[in-house]
Nucleic acid binder design. Sequence first.
DNA 1: CTCCCGATAT
DNA 2: ATATCAGGAG
Length: 218
Amino acid sequence: MKYEKEKLEEKKERAYTILTRLKKIYPTASTALHHTSALELLVATILSAQCTDERVNLVTKALFSKYHTTNEFADANRAELERIIKSTGFYRAKANSIINCCKMLVEKHGGVVPDTMEDLVKLPGVGRKTANVILGNFYGKTEGIVVDTHVKRLSELLELTKQTEPEKIEVDLMQIIPKKNWIAAGNILILHGRNICTARNPRCKECKVNDLCPSAKD
DNA sequence: CTCCCGATAT
DNA sequence: ATATCAGGAG
């Protein structure tokens, strides 16, 4: 709890310095999930739960060559869909989410993926994390910050928040990061989490912001 | 809080 | 063997 007494302004400045330095390492920070439409990004993001983006891209390559429209996903053969996405884990729940989600898109949104947080989180299998990914990376809208397992871990290690619940962490981050950087911030923290600040053996020596991290080890 | 769940690195 | 991977629902 090194930064327990840190003032809000100081925390904002530290966060800004951290993100500015990391931005230089990851200049083109954007989603690593392959997609050519909002629908594809939605499906890919649903599949990304507790699974590496690398594997998601492998699966979606086959998946998107078979299913193209919201209608096709809504009417998909459940067994076949499950078979294709099986290797991403949670495959029954994910197949359910994809099918039910696309059914709602067809029934209530004319088959189009909505571009507001309000509508997105009403979709089955879609929470704030998934909604923020779509809003930020496809529609160029910033209604929040993506808080996935990486952003959660780094925010806690860097003591940018004392919260442990993703939604509360997001509120804290939104308070200390300028809105125009919300999208980039999420993508940068995710990349740094994958490359350097890993969950198991974080490579703190190689970390360019270890001097600003109370959890850094040598 | 638990459950969903396969693949991979350690 | 075990922890972890772009979470969300009940």
